[in-house]
Amino acid sequence: MKRIFKLIEKYYFIIIILAVAVSLVYPKSFQWVLSNYNGINVLNLLLSIVLFTMGTTLKADDFINVFKNPKEIGVGISAQYIIMPLIALAIAKIFCLDDALTVGLVLVGTVPGGTASDVITFLSKGDVALSVSLTSVSTVISPILTPWITLLLIGNQIHFNPVDMFVSIIEIVIIPIVLGLILNYIFPDFCEKLKDYLPAVSSIVICLIVAGVIGANKEAILTSSAIIIIVIVLQYFLAMILGFGVGYLAGMDKKQIVTVAIELAFQNSGLSTSLAKTHFPNLSQATVPGALYSVWQNLAGSILAYIFRRYV
C-alpha cells in the first residue's frame, strides 16, 4: 500500500495531466467537485483536507525557526505578497483580460505559497527548512493579507466583500491547519506514520479540484486557451526569475535563492480557485487561472527541479 502512495506522489504531474484530459473529454465526470451537498461546499471541503494534512506535518519548532532566519523569512514573505500580486495585475493589464480572468489571475498572485513548493525544493536540493517556514508563515497570515491586497488591486474595478473572504480563509485554511497541529501534538507517532501517505492524498485532492474546475469551464478554455496559457506561463516564469533576483540581491546562498524562487512561483492555486468560486459567483471563468496554474506549476516544477539539482 505504501508503495502505491509513493508512486502517486512521484508521478503526480502525470496524474494531474491525465485528470485534465479526462475532464476535457468527459467534463461532467468531475461535476460533483463544484457541487454542494447538504449545505457543504465540496470544493472548500477538499481544500480543507489538503490544509489539514499540511497541519499534521507541522510542529511548533517550524514556527520557532522563523526567528532563527528573520532576514530570509522577511525577504521571502515580502516577495510573496508584493511581487507576486503586482506580477498578476501587470499581466492582466498588459493582456487586457476581462474581469473574470483578472480576478482569477490576481487571486493566484495574492494567495499564500503552496505546499508543493516544499516537495520541489527538496527535489531541487534547496533549503527545505526555509521552504516549510515560508509556506507556513505565508499561509498563517493569508487571512489578512490575501483579502486586503486583492481589495487594493481590484476593489475599485470589481466589487467583493473582503471581510467575507477573510472568514472563508479562516474556515478553509486556518482551522484545518490548527486541527492538524493539534492532532500532531497529541498523537505525534501516528502523524509521523501518516507522512508516508499524506503527500499522495493531497496530490489526489488537488487533481480532483483542477479536473472539476477545468471540466466546468471546458468551452471557455478551448475557445481562449492560447491567451490563458500564455498568461499563466508568463506569470510563473516571471515569479521564478524575480525570485532568483530577490534572493541574490538579499545576499542569500545558492540553496536559499533557489528556495525563494520556488516559493514565489508555487502558489496555493487550489485556494485561489475556491475563493474565486465563493466570492465571485457571477464570474465563472475566475476559477480557470487557478486550475491551469496548478497544472502548469507542477509540470514545470518537476522539470525545473531536475535542472536545479544538476546545474544550480
Rank of each mutant, 00 (worst) to 15 (best):
P27L: 01
Q31M: 10
L234V: 14
I17F: 15
V132F: 10
V163A: 06
P199C: 04
D189Q: 07
V75H: 04
K218Y: 02
K255G: 12
I241P: 05
L181V: 04
L183C: 03
K93I: 12
I257Q: 12
V312I: 14
V137C: 10
L130G: 07
A116D: 03
I227K: 14
I227F: 07
G215T: 03
P176H: 05
L58H: 05
I16P: 09
G301F: 15
I83R: 00
I154H: 09
T135W: 08
G104I: 02
Q285V: 10
T273L: 03
S203N: 04
I120D: 02
V205T: 09
D127A: 00
I257A: 05
V22M: 11
A286Y: 10
K255I: 05
K93F: 14
Q267F: 13
S142V: 11
L51P: 00
W148R: 12
I40V: 15
L181E: 04
V295L: 12
V108I: 01
P143R: 00
V246M: 15
S78L: 14
F244P: 02
K2A: 08
L101F: 15
T110F: 09
Y81L: 09
Y197L: 14
S117L: 15
G74Y: 11
A220N: 06
I257H: 07
E171D: 13
S117H: 14
V260T: 14
A79Q: 01
T278Q: 13
S142M: 08
I182D: 09
G113H: 07
S138N: 09
V20L: 11
T287S: 06
C96Y: 15
V246I: 14
I144R: 09
L249D: 10
I64G: 00
S203C: 05
I144W: 12
Y12P: 03
Y293H: 07
S284I: 14
L123N: 13
Y37Q: 06
S284Q: 13
A261E: 06
I149C: 13
I257N: 03
S136N: 10
I307Q: 15
T102K: 08
Y236W: 15
L134F: 07
A261R: 01
V312D: 15
D189V: 08
Y311M: 05
I175F: 02
P143I: 04
